[in-house]
Design a binder for these strands. Sequence first.
DNA 1: ATGTTC
Length: 484
Amino acid sequence: MSRRDYEIRQISPFIWQVEPFGEMSVPVRIYADSRLLEGIEQDGAGQQAMNVAHMPGIVRASLAMPDAHWGYGFPIGGVAAFDPERGGVVSPGGIGFDINCGVRLVASDLVEDDVKPRIDKIVRTLYQQVPCGVGSSKAIRKLSDKELRNLSRRGAAWTVEQGFGRPEDVEHTEEEGALDGADPSVLSARAIERGQPQVGTLGSGNHFMEVDVVREVYDEEVAEAFGVARGSVAFQIHCGSRGFGHQICSDFLKTMQKATSKYGISVPDKQLACAPLGRPEAEQYLAAMACGANYAWANRQVILALVVEGLEQVFGKDRDALGIRQVYDVCHNIAKMEEHDVDGQSRRLCVHRKGATRAFPAGHPAVPEDYREVGQPVLIPGDMGTASYLLVGADGAMDETWGSTCHGAGRVMSRKGAKKKAGGRNLKKELADRGVTVAWEGRSTLAEEMPEAYKDVDAVVSVMHEAGITRKVARLEPIGVVKG
DNA sequence: ATGTTC
């Protein structure tokens, strides 16, 4: 064990706390088992969570989820809430470059025996339907400047009006696929240009489309409410806001560097650049970030339509005959103004979730009406050779984590480290031996994304389950994967 | 994550 210059104390079976020291204004709380904790401390994510605890107006604690790993400024797997009435800030580093990176889960009436014999064809079809890889474009026509601005304001609903998917998909999407307050007038010309040709594209890195079999159901009642049955086939789409969101983040990091000094804010890491909520820099960033978020929801909506079109071709049946229905679409890179209880008082806070997923419990008004009795679906993608999870928000999330949970397995190996480890191996065959057919675009994608590059997703979701933040509903295992 | 170093 490496020597620490701080003390960490176990305050419950799955929560570890660092009391404030130096200029920290709140403690750090890490959700983890002892093994996950060790990884979080070793790669610097723990130190990053301590840095976040220094920021102005942070409320209660700087939180790290069990999948936390090192990121730009804030850890990926970090959650922090800021109070505008106490000098609270918004920081682009607390959202991430890929604004509204997220996951969409689609259920079907297909079973493994319908799909397994044609899995090669299905994977090839999905790969052809959706442009994959860095710089991918031309999934649909290049949008005009005006169309992109409309899409930025209205998100997924705008794409449904253009003929991609159905209104009920939007009802089963976080925020119904559009954040309020999106204002394209604050966007740079370069952001608009980068966004125009990329709607309906997957991107690269950990972004994927996946064919899964629902192998285990832990909670029959909730699974039924979500329309997910043991043995059925489901589809996942994981991607974000492409070059558009990346450009928005880059543009506003520059704005925020200036704002940090303008408002006399002191942060322990330049990458925590931020502006006080209510100030023009903060409000403009939130308006731009909402555009990025809405683009990502529109992007996943178009990709869903392209996936459905491909499946209709393969099976020679239409969407209804295949029983294809959207379970939910979650975001895991965003900041939102939300009402939360703080010491018995309801307060409006800016909740940053970076590599963290909203997980509202039963009864919360933001949960779609047909799920409100059970709680919000939470989608946790794992690595491409192991499993993904469907969870449901629990009461503990509102009490402890600003209605948030983990977002995935979380990297345990750098991209470079993974490539080195994969040298000389035939990963396509290794995955085929595990029953996973894979297609991919980038030269190094398969190596960088190999299962060993990720933490144990079972351990990650178990921590949040045992801590009472989210409950396990179903475990999905991949049989076909398309990687960017 | 990213027209992977405007």
